[in-house]
């Protein structure tokens, strides 16, 4: 613990990042360049998010990390232990108990509060990059609010698939001004970004950009009048907790095509099960063919 400054980064660097965060909060959706540091983890593992978390963490904070909704993946575990070691902060997997939540590809199902900060890991912060590779040109397009190109991408989707097939990193317009990439969250989560009481910070380490949404910001998903935005999810209920309103992951259970849908937000799912809810494939449901029994059957044959 003593060999590192609090939260790994030196104070000067944290100050620089905080300035970028404050600027981002002042201009919601605007990508602020910052001098991204080398972190002791590879790019793509959340170096942007980690630097933002390091800059906002205080010793009193309780830190939670989720990766695709789960607290127990390698990525989530290693970032959590990174801050346990370098900042000595308390950690948790319970959404409501956390004061800072770093996330990759999801927004927690449970509504966040004004006392919380949500930090997103962002691989490519530029929503216009797909169609306009020149950074000089995309910056000009942002500054002049020339966003027709964003709709060209959606047009191409409909032309090719009959509907807007973009299902994650679905572009949004912030406060009627900047078009922003919400990071690769499923579009199911897009509506949660708008009017959220918590502060939302986005960090892209490799691309050296930070952007932000202050509390209660207007965030609108782009769409066409005749192809309106839809926050879609798999048309099932959670096999474990029975939730019908949460984003689901499809889990392949065997090599005979068996599968189940479960909440991607593991904390939300556990919370519901602890409260007595169960889904049709959960072990608590006596009528369900559980995974355990299936496994037992396989052993017998």
């Amino acid at each position: 613990m003593t060999e590192y400054n609090f939260a790994y980064l030196d104070e000067q660097t944290k100050r620089m990042i905080r300035r970028a965060i404050l600027k981002g909060l002042a201009i919601p959706g605007y990508q602020v360049p910052f001098a991204s540091r080398e972190m002791p983890m590879p790019y793509g593992w959340g170096t942007g998010g980690v630097q933002v978390s390091a800059a906002v963490l205080t010793p009193e904070d309780r830190f939670k990390v989720i990766d695709q909704g789960a607290d127990d993946t390698t990525n989530a575990v290693s970032i959590r232990s990174f801050f346990e070691r370098t900042a000595g902060v308390a950690t948790t997997t319970t959404t409501s108990e956390a004061s800072v939540i770093q996330t990759r590809h999801r927004v927690p199902e449970e509504a966040l509060t004004e006392d919380q900060i949500l930090v997103y890991q962002v691989p490519i912060p530029e929503p216009l990059r797909f169609l306009e590779p020149r950074e000089s040109e995309t910056r000009k397009m942002h500054s002049l609010e020339e966003y027709g190109l964003m709709h060209v991408k959606l047009y191409e989707d409909i032309a090719r698939h009959g509907h807007i097939a973009t299902s994650y990193a679905y572009p949004v317009k912030v406060e009627g001004r900047y078009v922003m990439d919400p990071s690769p969250i499923p579009k199911f989560d897009n509506p949660k970004l708008g009017n959220m009481p918590a502060i939302q910070l986005f960090g892209a380490g490799r691309e050296q950009r930070i952007y932000a949404l202050p509390p209660y910001t207007q965030v609108v998903s782009l769409d066409f009048e005749d192809h309106p935005f839809e926050a879609s999810k798999a048309d099932h209920s959670c096999g474990l907790c029975g939730a019908t309103d949460s984003y689901l992951d499809e889990v392949i259970t065997d090599d005979q095509g068996g599968r189940m849908f479960v909440c991607s937000d593991t904390d939300y799912c556990e919370g519901r099960r602890a409260a007595g809810f169960f889904g049709e494939m959960s072990a608590e449901n006596p009528s369900a063919p559980t995974m355990t029994t299936q496994r037992n059957l396989e052993f017998q044959t």
Partner: peptide, 27 residues
Amino acid sequence: LRMGVSAGGNVGERLMAVGERHYGDIR
């Protein structure tokens, strides 16, 4: 032209750039 975008998207871009938001009309 935008070589990575369909012919329809190429023609539609200017329309979308001036605010047209109805896919059917643009097409």
